[in-house]
Design a protein around this nucleic acid. Structure first.
Lengths: 131, 131
DNA sequence: CCTACTGTCCTACACAAATAGGACAGTAGG
DNA sequence: CCTACTGTCCTATTTGTGTAGGACAGTAGG
């Protein structure tokens, strides 16, 4: 199965799901317009309450990743974020700054950091191409 | 004063402190070996319990940012992270991946993303130089 | 030694967060 | 229309997190 929950990590189950869907979407494991597993079906597979899955889907919708149609299901959104350019820059800058500050404390040099970033960009782009 | 806590954000006070110390250290606002404000003094300034500040300092020490000497005080560590290269790579990759995935969903192109990263690297490096 | 600092452990409490189950509304195909 | 699916709201319980104050141990200077 595509998703899994690890109860030993202490990280909330619904957040683990959110991350996994985000990664799957970014790396091409999920396609635009594709339907996600139903709330109940996924909940049973993962041995989790329906509302836990539902909470993850709600969070994903508020992030603009998926679209939920009541009575039909949840689907991966096909592009066009619901956020303005200003909001997008702010969200992204926050995460970039966190990584840059962490790199400083981990004593990772500028060149090494940039190399790592490019490597990861390549990684996600390559997976994207595949069938 | 160097630090401040905003109670309106909903973000825990001790985490706000952790972030501010991390940023101050990365941008040169705090120097290696420099003493941080004492737990009680800072707590009084910020109108916060001592243990809230103490918790922030504990977290910072576990991150390898500061060093705490019982009876004397807390000091900014002078380089040399306590982590192995493997652990450092793992910690950094996690944050880089998060930013890369977010960039994908915010539809920020590779070139724009790299430009942003370089801009922020410059920003922190420049502040570092200043007195 | 005594005083005034330093950080820390222990305990307590209030609040929020995470999870869980029952009942309900919309969709679609037989 | 009836059945079986979809997501959702409401409520309850539990668990964890953030904050708080009292008492204690180590350091340093008068």
């Amino acid at each position: 199965m595509l998703f899994h929950v690890d109860f030993k990590t202490g990280k909330p189950a619904y957040l683990q799901l959110v991350d996994q869907v985000r990664y799957a979407a970014a790396s091409g494991g999920l396609r635009a317009g594709e339907a996600l597993p139903s709330v109940r079906q996924l909940a049973e597979e993962l041995r989790v309450n329906r509302n836990t899955v539902a909470k993850a889907y709600t969070e994903l919708e508020s992030q603009g990743i998926i679209e939920t149609v009541p009575g039909k299901g949840c689907f991966l959104k096909d592009g066009n974020t619901p956020f303005t350019k200003a909001v997008r820059q702010k969200l992204l800058l926050k995460e970039i700054d966190e990584a840059v500050v962490t790199a400083h404390h981990l004593q990772v040099e500028r060149a090494d950091f940039l190399a790592l970033v490019k490597e990861r960009l390549d990684y996600f782009e390559n997976k994207q191409e595949k069938p």
